[in-house]
């Protein structure tokens, strides 16, 4: 069961509320610490366990219809043994638009390899 550190960079239109939750394989990010500005969050979620080399990126948002958000996810696979080398970061940019005003939970599964 590989363990990874997930680096993420989330940006949104101002007419989207502050995200209620951003989670990777159900492990939530600390949004209070990671807030860079009203429309930008950046941080790392450490020690996320993954199966099948896939990771579920869940973003819970609410805001006005047709507003945009995006998240860039970089995954650092942690070495299982001390002699293992760190893998290069793999990057998955994800962009989406709120389909309707109100509440929305977007959960998507992305391959990290």
């Amino acid at each position: 069961m590989p363990v990874v550190n997930v680096y993420y960079n989330f940006t949104k239109d101002r007419l989207i509320d502050p995200p209620i939750q951003i989670a990777f394989n159900a492990k939530p990010a600390n949004l209070v610490n990671d807030m860079q500005s009203v429309d930008s969050y950046k941080g790392v979620v450490k020690n996320v366990y993954i199966d099948n080399n896939e990771i579920e990126v869940a973003v819970e948002l609410e805001g006005i219809k047709s507003t945009n958000w995006s998240i860039t996810v970089q995954v650092e696979i942690l070495p299982r043994k001390a002699t293992d080398k760190l893998h290069d970061l793999s990057t998955s940019p994800i962009t989406d638009t709120l389909p309707e005003s109100g509440y929305a939970w977007h959960a998507k599964v992305y391959s990290i390899l």
């Binding site: 579920e56 869940a58 819970e60 609410e62 109100g102 509440y103 939970w105 959960a107």
Partner: peptide
């Protein structure tokens, strides 16, 4: 637990659409 997690994910996604803001 994996099956339960999948069920919860589906349930949360369905449920979140029913939340009225």
């Amino acid at each position: 637990l994996t099956d339960k997690l999948d069920k919860l994910r589906t349930e949360i996604n369905d449920y979140s659409k029913r939340v009225v803001r």
